[in-house]
């Protein structure tokens, strides 16, 4: 099996974000669909879903389905060595190891062991989201950084007019409002008013992934999970579903 991807940095930031919440997981590469990774963190608060479609790769040489058990920390360390303009080649010859090659000014290859783990069977959650907000990824990242200053919990409040992100603690309060007029919102679709709270830490841990995304779509409903979808070039999608806090 051999895959070649045009920008190693996309891998770098996605894997680095994943490694903050999950230790191990399985990449599934199937000849018809492309590469997918789904996993929950040990406390089952978030569900990660990363998808690289078949055509996002420049080379997609896959005979039969391949499963690669990954230690994310180790993989993230290697990917941190990715330079601007590096392409990435992921290769797997046998079931015990796989290699990462950075193709840029030279070719640098790292070989890592394949972990003997089984992919969790996770059902596809069927959720209805009554609020859907699409924003630019840099605005999303700034927002997370703002609320981080204050509390551990982030609260989303969405109406047909505006999207408000708030956090409070004994330390103080933060409130960030994006209205239709402000222009930061690309898209806003909300039924009534939706309001839900989430543990901020997951957003913080995963915010690195937004660096390589073009836009972010946040979907949620009152006291229901929120889905944060990262739209990444070449049709790559990284999303996570996070369970709410209900007091």
């Amino acid at each position: 099996m051999q895959l070649e991807f045009f920008d190693a940095r996309i891998w770098r930031y996605l894997v680095s974000a994943i490694s903050k919440v999950i230790e191990e997981g399985v990449f599934i590469v199937s000849p018809n669909e492309g590469m997918r990774f789904r996993a929950m963190d040990p406390s089952h608060v978030i569900l990660l879903d990363m998808y690289f479609p078949k055509d996002s790769f420049e080379t997609f040489d896959v005979g039969e389905e391949v499963r690669i058990g990954i230690n994310f920390e180790d993989l993230a360390k290697v990917l941190r060595r990715a330079k601007k303009e590096d392409r990435l080649i992921l290769e797997s010859k046998d079931s015990t190891s796989f290699s990462i090659t950075f193709k840029g000014k030279g070719e640098r290859t790292f070989t890592l062991p394949v972990l003997d783990i089984v992919a969790e069977e996770i059902p596809e959650p069927q959720l209805e989201f009554k609020a859907s907000i699409k924003i630019m990824s840099d605005i999303y990242r700034d927002t997370i950084k703002d609320v981080e200053l204050i509390g551990d919990i982030v609260k989303f409040i969405a109406s047909s007019e505006e999207f408000k992100i708030a956090s409070s603690s004994e330390f103080g309060e933060a409130e960030i409002i994006y209205s239709r007029e402000s222009g930061s919102i690309i898209d806003l679709e909300v039924e009534d008013v939706q309001e839900a709270s989430y543990t901020l830490e997951y957003f913080t841990d995963l915010s690195g992934a937004a660096r390589v995304a073009d836009t972010i779509t946040i979907r949620f409903s009152t006291d229901m999970p929120a889905e944060v979808i990262h739209e990444i070039p070449q049709g790559v999608v990284f999303k996570f579903l996070v369970a709410p806090r209900v007091e």
């Binding site: 929950m40 406390s43 089952h44 608060v45 978030i46 569900l47 959650p125 959720l127 543990t199 229901m224 999970p225 579903l241 369970a243 709410p244 806090r245 209900v246 007091e247």
Partner: peptide, 9 residues
């Protein structure tokens, strides 16, 4: 801390 699990849903 009131944090729900994905499983709940």
């Amino acid at each position: 801390t009131g944090q729900r699990s994905i499983f709940d849903f």
